[in-house]
Design a protein around this nucleic acid. Structure first.
Lengths: 150, 150
DNA sequence: TATTGTTATACTCTATAACTATA
DNA sequence: TATAGTTATAGAGTATAACAATA
């Protein structure tokens, strides 16, 4: 979505959880794109970097699992990051079917700086809620995601 | 998104507003699809019906504006609803460039029944938060959307 | 000249199926 | 036989450009 221009929303819409969630998400995506533009990565790519740089090196499939993306999607994401010199694939020595994906020095550096920018952006985005309630909001989102009744 | 399968999320992800928002939204979209399946409309189509059925009849462009979609997107949405006999286009007599889109009797009926189902689904989706906090959550979303600092 | 609806087209994101190599 | 990565491909969803009718 990039068509979140009009704010002339009638009540039938601002009553709908689906509408609200979708448009708040679109709005954040805009802000995120703006904030990350200087770093040349998208929010998704930054999330991939964050997962890959978390602690021990992991395989593409493991990363895909954490991110909740398909393994074919993961190929394209890692392709892009590798082309930009932010990560490196190497064949696992324990299981040569697997790619272990590690951050390069450039990747580590960009991760740190871009994560700072992202955190600032998110804080600003949530500012209308006030500090304590921003925390509450994040907790609520985590709760809704964790509820595995599916 | 339809790849919200894995719940094995590390902390780098559940800390991210973007990730949370995107995945909560995807999760709701799944539930919405399930709840609306008997009615043969998507959540978006139901939202279009709701906007068109709000009070006075409005034009396609006006509806598009309220929904926050492009006018070319609106064409396809109304096409689909018209094919299903839920709405009717007629040329405006005041300005013959405009299509006035009105709900058919079938459309009105479906709107009522599907909206009931949607409301039930949303209430259930927010149940993990508890009643008062669910209301608070919706208010927070409205606040974030209303903040027009862009 | 500008606006509304429309069509054609293209781009992004994502999934499915099939292939290769390893296990 | 099954798994990890890859490629090709197709399906949503959406936007841009150009056109026709009308203002």
């Amino acid at each position: 979505m990039a068509e979140s221009g009009s704010r002339a929303t009638g009540d039938v819409l601002t009553q709908r959880l689906g509408y609200l969630l979708k448009h708040v998400q679109a709005r954040l995506a805009e802000e995120s794109a703006r904030a990350l533009e200087p770093f040349g990565v998208s929010g998704r790519e930054l999330a991939v970097l964050a997962v890959l740089g978390e602690d021990r090196p992991i395989s593409q499939l493991e990363g895909a699992g954490k991110l909740g993306v398909d393994r074919t999607t993961m190929v394209a994401l890692v392709d892009r990051l590798e082309r930009d010199g932010l990560v490196e694939r190497r064949r696992s020595e324990l299981d040569r079917r697997k790619n272990v994906v590690a951050l390069t020095e450039r990747g580590e550096d960009l991760l740190r700086r871009a994560e700072d920018a992202r955190r600032r952006m998110e804080r600003e985005f949530l500012a209308p809620l006030g500090g304590a309630e921003a925390e509450w909001f994040l907790r609520a989102l985590r709760l809704l995601l964790a509820d595995d009744s599916r």
